[in-house]
């Protein structure tokens, strides 16, 4: 986002807010990944530990999710640039 019209105190405040948000997002990403990958990879409870197939599934699941959100982010940014380019400020 474009905060260039803010003064330095306001920019510092915004940076702090964004930093805090990023931390929260990271923790949320962590817990949602655990839930998502557990949900789709672990369906067999005949043993206590992860089987190797489950483990690769979990690894692929996390990798794939990050790549997925990266791609969505790229498309999202493109869309924002397109729609907001006209009105002067961009994401």
């Amino acid at each position: 986002m474009d905060f260039s019209q803010f003064n330095s105190a306001e920019q510092a405040h915004m940076n702090k807010v964004i930093e805090k948000k990023q931390m929260q997002d990271f923790m949320r990403l962590y817990s949602s990944l655990v839930e998502r990958c557990f949900q789709s990879c672990c369906n067999d409870f005949t043993s206590k530990s992860l089987k190797s197939t489950e483990e690769t599934c979990v690894m692929n699941c996390t990798d794939k999710f990050l790549k997925h959100s990266e791609r969505v982010g790229a498309r999202f940014a493109e869309h924002n640039a397109e729609t907001m380019g006209a009105s002067g400020s961009q994401l």
Partner: peptide, 10 residues
């Protein structure tokens, strides 16, 4: 996304 997770790439 296919939930089989056979490969790490999209």
């Amino acid at each position: 996304i296919n939930t089989r997770y056979a490969e790490p790439d999209l």
